[in-house]
Amino acid sequence: MTECDRIQEWLGAWLDGELPSAKAAEVKLHVEKCAACAAEKERIQRLDAALKRALEARVSDAAFAPFWAGVRDRIAREKSWRDRVFDWMRGVLAFPRLAWAIPVAAVVLIALFSTVRYFGWFAPTNLASVESIDGHGFNVALLREAKTKTTVIWLFENQETEDDNSVEPAASEQAF
């Protein structure tokens, strides 16, 4: 890379006043003594100026009134949309329609309660239930535990009546 290549990389930033002072001084010194870099500098200046002129010429006849009318239309459309939402909300919340609130609240509460029940939130830590069926010559007892989803079945022979004080059956008498 020649000295000119290096300087020309900085020319644009130098013209834009964006180089640190030491670098800017170096570029300036080089441009003053180098015809090629001075010509390149002028080309950049012509390019920027031509671009600005070209665009200025193309918007010079853009009147403000029709431009602002377009912006105002958009703002008006936005307002009417808001108004529609507010109108709808006012209508729904108006006194005769307040009756909606009761079934809606009921549905929300049922949904909430079902969800809580389904996921078991706030449920007691462990629940077990025992059921028994007494038959002629046979007794059946079921123990169901919710937490571990365990079911235990006891079959008893020749115990016609329930005796709360009776001792637990031996392990050999159990059937699963």
Binding site: L51, L55, E56, R58, V59, S60, A62, F64, F67, W68, G70, V71
Partner: peptide, 25 residues
């Protein structure tokens, strides 16, 4: 504020989108 800046904004937009009606939009 719009009256002050709309032309300058329009110029830059026109340079990017190239089509005048699009730039106006």
């Amino acid at each position: 504020l719009a009256a002050k800046y709309y032309r300058r904004v329009l110029m830059v937009i026109l340079g990017i989108v190239h089509h005048r009606e699009d730039a106006m939009e």
